[in-house]
Design a protein around this nucleic acid. Structure first.
Lengths: 191, 191
DNA sequence: GCCGTCCATTTACATAGGTAAAGAAATCAT
DNA sequence: ATGATTTCTTTACCTATGTAAATGGACGGC
């Protein structure tokens, strides 16, 4: 729990009082590889802090194809953020790619406390701002760069994932087919 | 100014005291068609509320091509949000597509007040959350939908823009060339 | 009303990336 | 270890979209 608090405070400092209260709100859970933390179609309720493991956030289209929106690596926050914020059913699934160790809390048990704990609301604001900035970056990468360049960026951003998860998950993250990723990898090792 | 306050409070209520203070922070400015509100390469300082007019946020690549990230229509907030948040030079330009009428404020004059005015920080949090949700939606559209479908979505989302701004700005927003947009439009009127 | 500029469309060709299916390689369960 | 399953690569073909250049409209300034 100490580690957890340290992580939270590294985003924005929390008072000892707030931290004490948080102790009662977060609880420890384990998630096995392939299990879900959030399921598409349901309203997300849980907010989590990933202490160990890897998850992916993905969309499934009507056609059945999947798009990996994001990979989560500890330490980080996890959850169906859009759904938590809007209260609408989550468009995304959050699935463990390895066994995971998670601290989880009921999201509204947190937001209910914003009035009393402005330090927590501040953390929340900063998080939302950071996520927005991240999304904006990713948007530009997707539109302006070709798959090859995006692959290089992926390898920089997630160096440990390349050999840990299946290529088709990486392809899906890049918005291309495994076929195309294979072509790109081949090109690179030769060219 | 009354309208302005109403818009702010429609996002999240502000106390009369906060509103009174804001009066001293925001000032009215006019922007002519083609002028910039934010310039890429410079650190953004201004936060604005668009009362009348249309702007575009766009990237320029090294190759000189442009990508229109977003169109702003009154009433809405405008600014180089990423740059405001990170304090790094703005990657985007914000340019008026029509004459604009704007209320502007120094961003840090606002953020400095978060400690005193938690209602303002709350508004800020809610905004950031909403923007994040928007970006997430757009990301999925870009990756999962072809240009034709994105064009239909554009027309739904910005119905008044189709005949107001040049086609090449729309093409750029869709991430395609004017050539391709022209093909799509032709297809639609026939098919 | 005329000219010049800006814009949209069209054409011909080039390319990145998709689809489907087969083969090769790696991994897992027993 | 062995077979079964999963994953990765390759091939052949197809489509969406890009590039460059030409054409033709529309509109503003005078």
């Amino acid at each position: 729990m100490q580690q957890l608090f340290q992580y939270l405070c590294s985003i924005s400092p929390l008072t000892p009082a707030t931290l004490r209260e948080l102790e009662g709100i977060f609880c420890e859970v384990a998630l096995r590889k392939h299990e879900s933390f959030v399921e598409a179609g349901k309203v997300a309720k849980k907010f989590g802090i990933l202490e160990h493991g890897i998850l992916r956030a993905y969309y499934r289209t009507e056609g059945g194809q999947e798009y990996n929106k994001h990979f989560f690596r500890a330490p980080c926050f996890i959850g169906g953020f859009s759904s938590l914020v809007t209260g609408e059913p989550s468009p995304i699934n959050l699935q463990a790619l390895t066994d995971c160790h998670i601290w989880e809390a009921d999201y509204h048990s947190l937001t209910k406390r914003y009035d009393e704990w402005p330090d927590l609301e501040r953390l929340s604001r900063i998080l939302a701002e950071q996520y927005f900035v991240q999304k904006e970056r990713r948007e530009v990468e997707i539109v302006l760069l070709n798959a090859d360049k995006r692959y290089q960026i992926f390898k920089n951003e997630f160096p440990e994932l390349e050999n840990l998860i299946p290529q088709y998950h990486i392809a899906s993250y890049l918005g291309i087919t495994p076929t195309q990723l294979s072509r790109i990898r081949k090109m690179r090792t030769k060219g």
